[in-house]
């Protein structure tokens, strides 16, 4: 079966060559992935499988690094490196920290 990522040879429109400066959070996603792969906690093949498992909707609607961080989180959960409640809590902490920083005059 041809899965969502397997696009070689499919019809597609023109190639959009506009440049894109990576946002700081996108570089952080990249750094997280490199460190996890470097520490042999994730493999590239596991990463790709996890991205594919996000499904066609995610593949169509999410940007590249949105898919990556989603996949990294799912893989960390799947491997038991983090628990759902730890992750949920850390997300709330990140939101609270951001709100506090943004409210500084």
């Amino acid at each position: 079966m041809q899965r969502i990522h397997d696009v070689g040879g499919l019809p597609a429109g023109p190639v959009d060559r506009s440049p894109h400066d990576y946002a700081p959070w996108e570089k952080k996603v990249d750094a997280i992935m490199r460190l996890m792969i470097g520490a042999n906690l994730f493999t590239l093949d596991e990463m790709r499988r996890t991205i594919e498992e996000l499904g066609p909707g995610a593949y169509e609607e999410l940007s590249y690094y949105q898919r990556w961080i989603q996949a990294a989180a799912n893989l960390a959960l799947e491997k038991g490196l983090v628990t759902p409640s730890e992750l949920g809590q850390a997300i709330e902490t990140a939101k609270a920290r951001h709100a506090e920083a943004a409210s500084c005059p």
Partner: peptide, 19 residues
Amino acid sequence: WHMALTEAMAELIVQKGLC
């Protein structure tokens, strides 16, 4: 959402001693 998730993951991998 994805920025918060990224911050959370960065925080957790440090907390867990993975890096």
